[in-house]
Design a protein around this nucleic acid. Structure first.
Lengths: 132, 132
DNA sequence: CAGCATCCCGATGGATACTG
DNA sequence: CAGTATCCATCGGGATGCTG
């Protein structure tokens, strides 16, 4: 937002805008969690699965594959029995930590206001519906 | 990510983590676009609708209501005929512009790498499937 | 003009079962 | 262990039509 490339082109609103790409990247339940966990260091598939603990195998695999495709996560398969696979952030992946951290910091700093606004809004809605 | 509150609690992975709240906030196609447009200043419903140009009335209204509920956007209804409604970012809403800008800047700076990674990945996948 | 109500389709994603 | 394949319920969200 308020970015140079976006301001120059009228197509901020198009799917071609970089903004869209990034949002599509982090805009699902699991991606951010995976990145967050991998920010701590290289980890095995099973460890990720256990830590996230609400995610299905399907979603974890799908998320990891997407991140790998985007070059944010590297996949290391060891030809052993039983198999072992480790995941870690790439250099590119690490660069994403900071801006995402900024967003997280914002969240923590303004969560109270946000919740207060919600309560107030819901309260007013309730009163309005009662008077109707 | 890599945030204090998140690191302290083991429940980063729970829905209670502020991260989740923020992501839920911006994680859909339209929210960011609306915020982006409103960052330019107060605007009418119809103007937003026309500028975004792929959005349905349903989604625009829904997005605006959500942002209003979260205290990020203020809604001004003028009791006129025909009706006029204007939307603008609240003070809280403005504070979100910067962290979102950081993400956008990241996107612009790394989009090329991202696309290259994708091409490379898809290329390798193709070769793998052919040899099979 | 600025919505709300309704219908409806496709995608998302969980649960389950199977495999190298 | 680290997946893949399949089935199926839910839901986001578009299209359409109506109202104050």
């Amino acid at each position: 937002m308020v970015s140079k490339a976006c301001s120059l082109h009228p197509n901020v609103l198009s799917a071609q805008c970089p903004t869209r790409q990034v949002l599509d990247l982090i805009a699902d339940k699991w991606t951010t969690l995976v990145i967050y966990l991998l920010a701590r260091g290289r980890q095995r598939y099973g460890d990720l699965h256990r830590q996230i603990g609400g995610i299905s195998q399907k979603m974890l695999t799908q998320t990891l594959r997407k991140l790998e495709r985007d070059g944010l996560v590297a996949r290391h398969v060891y030809p052993e029995v039983p198999p072992r696979t480790e995941y870690e952030l790439t250099v590119l992946g690490h660069t994403l930590i900071e801006p995402m951290g900024a967003l997280c910091t914002w969240a923590e700093g303004h969560l109270a206001e946000l919740e207060q606004a919600r309560r107030r809004y819901d309260h007013l809605q309730k009163k309005a519906s009662l008077s109707a």
